[in-house]
């Protein structure tokens, strides 16, 4: 176990090097001078002022020098300050990451709550109407974009029924957990829809092959109930694929809930990242990207370790 963790940490360092270097490179390639973004369009283009700002930001140094000076600071936990808002990047992240993470977590939990029974039922009733109906439902869920689901939810629960606020975000620390959940449930559901579809398909197909195993027949011959066999014998060996995808999706959600965050006016990471990109706020882009990459790798490491919990045979390797 320890060996696995150490190997993972080494891989994490390698990944972070690659991610930071590539992001730095990409942002350097972005058209447009960040100084323009800082000064705004209206400002008189005084070459002396521009040169001063460039020198101040270190933009005159070669790419490699800028990269390593940023990297050195990042190692001490200093991800720099926004060129536009003057806010510390670390502060931005600690404010916004919990929001996005909650959204991601909630949506995955919601997706799993529905996906597990649907997937298990589909496998159990393979080829019967229950299976066909759930396949059709899943197909629909997959093909509707999540912002459409979001708009529909707003129309139904905020506009028509008036049960939930249409947008905005309540922080659990200031407004309490209930108010927080009321603002989180709709965006989380919108995000959960597609995932639910994918998860249930994966569980179904893994389960179909598990149900053909000899040990399932043996369990039947012991007179156990179908429900017991499905959930206590077949589900665990059928959950490795879905675990992998849950890990990948969680990472993806941390960086990519931009549309839903915008739709529901949620102060999350994605929202901020889009702002930073349009403002050429390279330091912020860089900081957030690195942070997301780190979390991503950490989550995938946790998933890998969870395999061993689910399937004891993996522990020996």
């Amino acid at each position: 176990m320890l060996k696995v963790v150490v190997a993972r940490l080494v891989r994490l360092v390698g990944t972070l090097f690659a991610v930071t270097f590539l992001t730095f490179g990409m942002t350097a390639l972005l058209p447009g001078d960040p100084v323009n973004a800082i000064l705004g369009v209206e400002t008189v283009r005084d070459p002396a002022v521009i040169a001063e700002i460039r020198a101040d930001l270190g933009l005159d140094n070669p790419f490699i020098v800028r990269y390593f000076s940023w990297l050195g600071d990042a190692f001490t936990g200093d991800l720099g300050k926004s060129w536009i808002t003057d806010q510390q990047v670390m502060e931005t992240i600690t404010q916004r990451l919990p929001v996005t993470a909650e959204l991601a977590f909630l949506s995955i939990i919601l997706a799993l709550i529905f996906a597990i029974p649907i997937g298990v039922l589909g496998a159990y009733k393979q080829g019967k109407w229950q299976d066909n109906a759930s396949s059709a439902g899943v197909q629909v869920a997959l093909s509707v974009p999540n912002f459409i689901v979001g708009i529909f939810l707003i129309w139904l629960f905020a506009v028509k029924l008036g049960w939930l606020p249409a947008s905005n975000w309540s922080r659990p620390s200031t407004d309490g957990i209930w108010a927080n959940l009321k603002t989180a449930i709709m965006p989380a559901s919108a995000l959960a829809m597609t995932q639910m579809a994918i998860f249930s398909r994966l569980i179904r197909s893994d389960m179909v092959s598990t149900l053909q195993e000899n040990y399932i027949l043996a369990a039947r011959s012991k007179g156990l109930s179908d429900r017991f066999i499905l959930f206590r014998h077949a589900l665990r060996p059928s959950s490795l694929s879905v675990m992998t995808i849950v890990g990948i999706n969680f990472g993806a959600l941390l960086g990519g809930t931009v549309i839903i965050e915008t739709l529901f006016a949620i102060p999350g990471v994605g929202f901020r990242l889009i702002n930073a990109i349009s403002q050429r706020d390279i330091i912020v882009i860089q900081g957030i990207t690195v942070f997301i990459a780190t979390v991503y790798v950490v989550i995938n490491t946790i998933v890998d370790l969870l395999y061993a919990v689910v399937d004891p045979r993996i522990r020996r390797r």
């Binding site: 000899n214 040990y215 043996a218 156990l224 206590r232 665990r236 045979r313």
Partner: peptide, 30 residues
């Protein structure tokens, strides 16, 4: 009847036990 009145020992013990369930539970769950 299954497991209680009549039961079966299968051909291949490598595949007829659930690999992710402890032996103790498998022996007595029924």
């Amino acid at each position: 009847l299954w497991g209680a009145e009549m039961s079966m020992v299968f051909q291949d013990p490598m595949t007829s036990l659930n690999p992710v369930v402890k032996v103790g539970r498998q022996v007595t769950e029924h």
